Amino acid sequence: MLPARHRLRERTDFTTAVRGPGASRAGGRLIVVHANRTDVRADHPPRVGFVVSKAVGNAVVRNRTKRRLRASVAARLSRLPTGLDVVVRANPAAATASWDELDLAVARQLDKACRP
């Protein structure tokens, strides 16, 4: 579980991270990562949100995928810049990916999306 200060919760925060001015995106076969840095949050810790739709699978599969993504991002949270909002969206292929594949995808896409 991510600490509360590192979680995106509001719909507007998700929308701003995905479509706001200055938003960046990096995607692959397993996941898509959206990132947005705003001046308003410059001194605040990074926040992360997850989107896992029904296209990924049933509730059990979606929750497992979300837990795996959360664990992978939590391990990299200290390396994210301050003031950054990140949304990690799982593609259907993420449901059948191994832990190593998913972890590598998260590392690659976070690096691409969070470049200054």
Rank of each mutant, 00 (worst) to 15 (best):
P3N: 12
P3I: 06
P3F: 07
R5W: 05
R7S: 05
R9W: 07
E10I: 04
E10R: 15
E10T: 04
D13Y: 10
D13L: 10
T15S: 04
T15W: 02
T16G: 10
R19N: 02
G22K: 05
G22A: 11
A23F: 05
S24K: 13
R25M: 09
A26R: 02
R29T: 04
R29S: 03
L30V: 00
I31V: 13
V32C: 05
V33W: 02
H34F: 14
N36D: 06
R37K: 14
V40Q: 07
R41L: 14
A42H: 12
A42G: 03
P45R: 12
P45N: 10
F50I: 08
F50V: 05
V52Q: 02
S53C: 00
K54P: 00
K54V: 05
G57Y: 00
G57C: 00
A59D: 04
V60Q: 08
N63K: 00
R64D: 07
R64Y: 04
R64N: 07
T65A: 05
K66E: 08
K66H: 06
R67K: 01
R67L: 09
R68L: 12
L69G: 06
L69I: 08
L69K: 06
R70Y: 07
S72D: 02
V73K: 02
V73H: 06
V73N: 01
A74E: 11
R76C: 01
L77R: 06
L77K: 11
L77Y: 03
L80E: 01
L80V: 10
L80M: 10
P81K: 01
P81Q: 05
T82F: 13
T82K: 10
L84M: 09
D85H: 13
V88L: 07
V88P: 03
A90Q: 09
A90G: 12
N91G: 00
P92M: 04
A93N: 11
A94E: 10
T96G: 15
T96E: 15
T96A: 13
E101P: 10
D103W: 11
L104P: 09
A105P: 14
A105T: 10
V106F: 14
A107Y: 11
R108E: 14
L110D: 09
L110A: 13
D111A: 15
K112W: 11
C114R: 03
C114K: 07
R115M: 13
P116Q: 14
P116H: 15
